[in-house]
Amino acid sequence: MTETTQTSAFRTFRGDTGAPLDPELRSIIARFVVLAVLCAGVALLNENFLSVANFTNVLRQASLLFLIAAGATLVIIAGAIDLSVGAILTLSACVAAGVIHATGSSGLGIATALAIGVSAGLANGILVAGLRLPPFLVTYGMLWILSGGALYYMGGIPITGFPREFRFLGSGFLLGIPVPILIMIAIALAGSVVLHMTMVGQQIVMMGANRAAATLAGIPVRRNLICVYVASGACAGLAAVVALGRVNSADPGMGDPLLLPSIAAILVGGTSLFGGTGTLLGTALGALLLTIVLNAMNLLTIGSAWQPFATGIVLVGAMLADAFLNRRRS
């Protein structure tokens, strides 16, 4: 390798025939294999695992985790971070619940959730891109502000019971498939198309890989940053609608337990925390992997105290595996 790339001044380029498999594709395949092996193993140990009821439940749970992580994946690929997704979900869900109870309109409720998500994302984007504040601080501050807003709005009393048509998005079925899973597939596809098949997607990847180089290449870095934050907020708003439909109740603590698992799903999915690499398909697989591990532990009656431990093992294991594979390749 070195003699062809480093020393020769002659034309050593010989097309793409010698090109290795695209690293992102390779990382997806690796995760898919791990997932399949994991499923087969758990299925052998416990016959309930592959039952329709259990598997549907796993997929539903994973889809919520994916939705909240999807937009945040784009933010991380772009070289920033969004810690406010859990809080955006909370506030969107609470206010949407209030609107539905006040007006009886499901459509208005959905619109409210999405509008709050988009607005919060826009605020994050403007603070980070426009005022050049550090993403970690902005979205961490936003986490507290939005959580506080939800607490204030709810006044300590959860809102429960929503119309059937509103709950459809969270707990309905279409053609025998749970709707959240369809939403997950749709978002994963749409997001992947944007990321890999549009110019803006490529710009987002490249500005995550080297912000300064992208700026000097005339990439509209600030506009793109605002866009990914808005996408992240919108995904959290959509996740709020799904969550409300599933649990049929809104309370000001509902988003908190989702933030750290969503970051875990993104990282397990192969997205670099430093930006510049990552896929939405990876985040979907990461969400599935983490959910299945926890589900398997429940089925195998391993104490719940071991669950965070398992999440940590999966996370560090994924990092180790990637590091090992990359080292072997080079």
């Binding site: 001044a9 010989r14 090109a19 080079s330």
Partner: peptide, 14 residues
């Protein structure tokens, strides 16, 4: 006449 194996090679290896 950039000496690289392919278009997909990471630029850091050049």
């Amino acid at each position: 006449r950039i000496a690289t194996r392919s278009t997909r090679q990471p630029v850091r290896t050049l």
